[in-house]
Design a protein around this nucleic acid. Sequence first.
DNA 1: CAATTCACGTTGTACTATACAACTACTTCC
DNA 2: GGAAGTAGTTGTATAGTACAACGTGAATTG
Lengths: 144, 144
Amino acid sequence: MTQRNASVEIIQQQLTAFARRARATAARIHPELSLVSYTLLAHLDDQQGCRATDLAAHYFLDKSTVSRQIAALEKLGFVERRVDPDDHRVQVLHPTPAGAAVLSNAMTSRRQAFHERLGDWDDADLARFASYLLRYNAAQELKG
Amino acid sequence: MTQRNASVEIIQQQLTAFARRARATAARIHPELSLVSYTLLAHLDDQQGCRATDLAAHYFLDKSTVSRQIAALEKLGFVERRVDPDDHRVQVLHPTPAGAAVLSNAMTSRRQAFHERLGDWDDADLARFASYLLRYNAAQELKG
DNA sequence: CAATTCACGTTGTACTATACAACTACTTCC
DNA sequence: GGAAGTAGTTGTATAGTACAACGTGAATTG
């Protein structure tokens, strides 16, 4: 096997191993917010509100999945809906203050966990790792 | 925000994005074998047979989860059990020829998909990316 | 402008992956 | 030989997901 093939094989295995653990890890570091809820809520926060359809498109989820996730977040009081006055079909979603607070805690826990795991990396390696992941995912999105 | 924090943030986001898509991607590249089935079967193949408990420990899964996954793979005719003659509690698991065949197809598809995504990377970057992922996951396993 | 088509979201249904707890069957150790 | 431990299964519950059918409102078009 060439060096190149060996590298690809390792990347594949390691990304797969990571993916398998991600949900469980998320549950451990912020039990109050699942990986998906966290992701959706973070997107709402980041975008200053958006539509369910946008979330579905962005995360390759079915609109019914998003609908249920949002319903759950709403039931927990973390998200609120505001009907778009220009188009009554549309509900613009926003984190509530409680949602923003729980998100902020989760982000802090996540950030801390990642900083711990990456604590002994030097800055140049971190920057390079970050750029590789960006590049990898960007390619995914185009071809996916 | 420091450069270092920015890198950690990106790593976190990108790994999370990857994880979210991994199952769906696996389903697309090899519909006949889910991400988990694939992983377990690959492990059996790689280890030349092992016990359910070993799989559970290795992948941080509950033994009941492994039990059901293996039952499903057995039902599909991809795995067989051989009671360990030295310890009748133990079932040593092996891929069947059919299991090895389907695994081999799935591995080929995966490999191809990864090679495509990584096609325009140069060898040095690939090798470095692989080493970063190894390092990241190794740290996870110790602290996990 | 009325009728058709389209877009947004919800609900019914089904399935997969997962965990925890209770259980059975076997082994080991005192 | 009985107590304690280990391997695996089964019952039960939950999360996340998809697809299909639907309701409702918007846009287009003949």
